[in-house]
Design a binder for these strands. Structure first.
Length: 259
DNA sequence: ATGGTAGCGCTGCTA
């Protein structure tokens, strides 16, 4: 069995004790984290080594930053869109590696801020470029997972209230079409494969007591190629990780694959 | 109730 997870930690410096605690408890084989908010030289490699994990980080500084933490090996590491143009040039939003035979693509999709805005336009371009990059660097016939914080809620039932999101990012037709385009390439939403009900969220804004009001969104996704889809045996969102002292505003999403 | 909270880093930006 292989257990893979994605978690937007909202600053690895602020969250390291909780990340270490969660790894010990949840025992992921591969953990993809987003928003490390640190430079590569500040990345706490030794903390993960001490837990039995290798790690690679594509960091930036005070914003963004993505890392893969694995106890099943890390090979063929790449970051960004390689030679393709990045609509968010300079941002550290993508790192990919092969971990235990699984091509693992960890993404932190741009937020988009407002509709309309040039940030929103570039979010759509970024998602389109992600598909182009996948097409040129991978085969959907292989074992591929594209996982991370997509900053898109794929369906109405993935947000607590569509009325509250009228006119906002994360739920627009074009953002959802960009996710659908990734799925057309040959990926499927592993969590929805096993759970169809509403009210299952992975993010709650810190503001306004949203977590306690159950005002959440499901924007952290694990998109799996067909070869991986066949192996999915469980999927969960670890809401407990959103509780207690100094939680991230996101909960980890955990998928288990049969061998 | 257009406030509210968190992180970075030191003033305001980002989410």
């Amino acid at each position: 069995m292989t257990r893979i997870a994605t978690w937007n930690v909202n600053s690895l410096k602020a969250r390291l004790p909780r990340v270490e605690e969660w790894i010990t408890l949840a025992q992921p084989d591969i953990l993809c984290i987003q928003e490390t908010k640190m430079k590569n030289e500040a990345f706490p490699t030794e903390a993960f080594t001490a837990l039995g994990y290798e790690s690679v980080h594509h960091g930036q500084g005070q914003w963004n930053g993505v890392a893969i933490i694995s106890r099943v090996g890390i090979k063929n590491v790449t970051s960004g869109f390689d030679d393709l143009e990045d609509p968010y040039e300079g941002d550290a939003r993508l790192i990919a590696a092969t971990c235990g035979g699984l091509r693992t693509v960890n993404v932190y999709v741009p937020n988009g801020r407002e509709v309309p805005s040039e940030f929103y336009d570039r979010k759509l371009l970024w998602l389109a470029q992600l598909k182009n990059w996948l097409t040129t660097t991978s085969s959907s016939k292989d074992s591929v997972v594209v996982l991370g914080d997509f900053n898109v809620a794929p369906e109405d039932k993935d947000v607590w209230s569509m009325e509250a999101f009228a006119g906002l990012t994360h739920v627009t037709k074009l953002e959802r079409a960009a996710i659908a385009a990734l799925e057309e390439w040959g990926l499927s939403d592993s969590f929805r494969q096993l759970h169809q009900e509403d009210g299952l969220y992975s993010f709650w804004d810190y503001r306004g007591g949203d977590f306690h009001k159950k005002h959440g969104m499901r924007i952290d996704l694990v998109l799996a190629s067909k070869a991986v889809e066949k192996r999915v045996i469980s999927a969960l969102i670890d809401r407990d990780a959103r509780k207690g002292e100094k939680p991230s505003d996101h909960a980890p999403v955990v998928i288990e694959l049969s061998d």
